[in-house]
Design a protein around this nucleic acid. Sequence first.
DNA 1: TGCCAGGCTTCAC
DNA 2: GTGAAGCATGGC
Length: 280
Amino acid sequence: MLGTFKENLMVRVDFPCFDIQKIAESGQCFRLVRSGQDDWTLTAFGKALHIRKIKNGEYIFSCTKREFNSIWKNYFDLESDYGAYADQIPKSDRFLSAAAEYSEGIRILNQDPWEMLITFLLSQRKSIPAIRTCVEKLASSFGNEINDDGKTVYAFPTPEQLYHAGVDGILSCSAGYRAPYLYEAASLVLSGELDPEYLKNSDDAELKEKLLSLRGVGEKVANCVMLFGYHRINAFPVDVWMNRMIDRHYNGSFPMDLYRGFAGIIQQYIFYYGRTYSGH
DNA sequence: TGCCAGGCTTCAC
DNA sequence: GTGAAGCATGGC
């Protein structure tokens, strides 16, 4: 039996280069959680979505075809040709070729810019499991309730909700010294000085400048927000893992010029390979 | 138990 | 412009 999947409320999809497990483990999203052997649950855009793997590349989604086409197809970036990106890696780069093959199926999600800003403000000097815990605490403490087939899950808090939570409320969710960063960001949105949606219209340089002006946002966090929240796939976040890989395999200098325009996708392959595969 | 985490701000120099 | 200390708290 299909359980949470009802015949009139599910979509069967079959896409190449799409692997939900790798995406869930790729460090770009924190609310896509494995809920069974072949099942994942995603909370995003005020909705709960269930995803079940049938076989490689083939999945069923717990939503109507209309919802799939209007929200999730874009969310999972299913219309981009990731094979074409991987094809541009020179065969001579054995490390990157292996990383791309290992990471096949990862896509850069189109996530909510506000959620990405707050999530990656939180991410600094936290482990990925700790980020996940913190995001869930924020959602269940301050976010709207979502009825997920009888079970209650929580939407990511809006700027208004975080503002009303206050620094103390945010602190109670294990945000630590980052709590004022989150609170300030929420305040700026409420005052109109920061408009995450409007920034979708900005070019890369303008967007980055605005992000860097926020307290708690540096080079790395800005690049994560650009890549995962604004789908600027040329953004190239460099963290401790990336530095480790670049030092080990490129003598400290990565040939960015080869990947102009989609360096962020290459970055994601290196990051995922470096973090999850021990044999390199 | 102690160490480290998808870094940033602040303050010397 | 570069370098180094300090940072709250959870995971392992």
